[in-house]
Design a protein around this nucleic acid. Sequence first.
DNA 1: TTGACGGTAGACAAATCTGTCTACTAGACA
DNA 2: TGTCTAGTAGACAGATTTGTCTACCGTCAA
Lengths: 196, 196
Amino acid sequence: MAGHTADITDNGQESSARNRVLDTATKLFYAGGVHAIGVDRIIAEAGVAKATFYKYFPAKDELVRAYVQNQSRLGRAAIDRIGERPARATILAIFDLVADAAAQPGYRGCPFLNAAAEYPDPGHPVRQAIGEHRRWKHDLLRSLLAADGNPDPDITADILTVAGDGLLIASHLDKPANLRHLIRETVLQILGPSAG
Amino acid sequence: MAGHTADITDNGQESSARNRVLDTATKLFYAGGVHAIGVDRIIAEAGVAKATFYKYFPAKDELVRAYVQNQSRLGRAAIDRIGERPARATILAIFDLVADAAAQPGYRGCPFLNAAAEYPDPGHPVRQAIGEHRRWKHDLLRSLLAADGNPDPDITADILTVAGDGLLIASHLDKPANLRHLIRETVLQILGPSAG
DNA sequence: TTGACGGTAGACAAATCTGTCTACTAGACA
DNA sequence: TGTCTAGTAGACAGATTTGTCTACCGTCAA
């Protein structure tokens, strides 16, 4: 969910120029915000011709949508890297990713929340891409909660989502003293006593 | 904390033109985002001359800072309107404000979180104004928790802040079915059994 | 009556934004 | 050899951005 600043795009056999654009956009949009970064800057730093840029991304907003989807892919990859664990341990590991991301140098909070703040229209493709990622994560949490034997996975997934977003905000804006402790405290309180 | 879209500025005996600018900016910035709204638009809708605008706000960022401070004032006023109640009831009422705000037509989430997303530099005056508001609210929650007999008001205030931000995000991006229920559920779980 | 003050109206500059278009280059392949 | 494809380089248009500056108006007070 959080920002994975400098990873590679690496989605199969896509064009090299396209990948360079998307990687550069991912880095710049995350660091500077979507509206504040112009396509000229991306084109220059990606070392690509303007015609090539507009060949792959006919409008800036389509690049922004691809950026959000790329962040979604990076977030899912980070969760995949956790590997097989019991449901409860997986949930805790997912939330630990927030602390991992927050410890990275260029951390600037959640790329999805930041992007959503710049797109007021909920029907905009960018907002829809954000919504897709959020639904995916919510569903993942719900199924993990069910596997953990949670009595009401639906509402608990809602609460966990609230906690996750709040922790991402806090880790960015407030930088609390002991973030990992705060995360544990929050999540364990929501999960309740272990069903073991 | 949430957006109070159409209230009046009304801060003492300030200039009328200045108030018109700040009110218009508050409405437009909240609805459309800070970078997406140009000063020309604000000047036109406020019905003010450009020279007057730049007399009161020598740069756009100063207007943005004033906008954040205005939202802070509106948020504090909404909390003041709750009146005298026991500490725990006050906390619950503060969180109910999220549901109230979310029910309003032009609701677009938390103005502070939205604005912070557009200002990457933590040292920027706009970010500092946001930080001031967040510290104020955190301290308010902490003292209410202490009055409620909470055993560890510091960490609980952290958790309540996390929950508040998460609820503001959820109420905006996810629009959960029963927001008021989710708020109660979340807050009561954090507050624990009543100390009565 | 004079002048300060708050404000209006709008031209203007300089930069920056997105997006289009032309002309050229290098490699792959038939 | 000829052609298709992917890409480069960069001029250009048109709109929009922030910010400055000039000229003017009305009111109130000394």
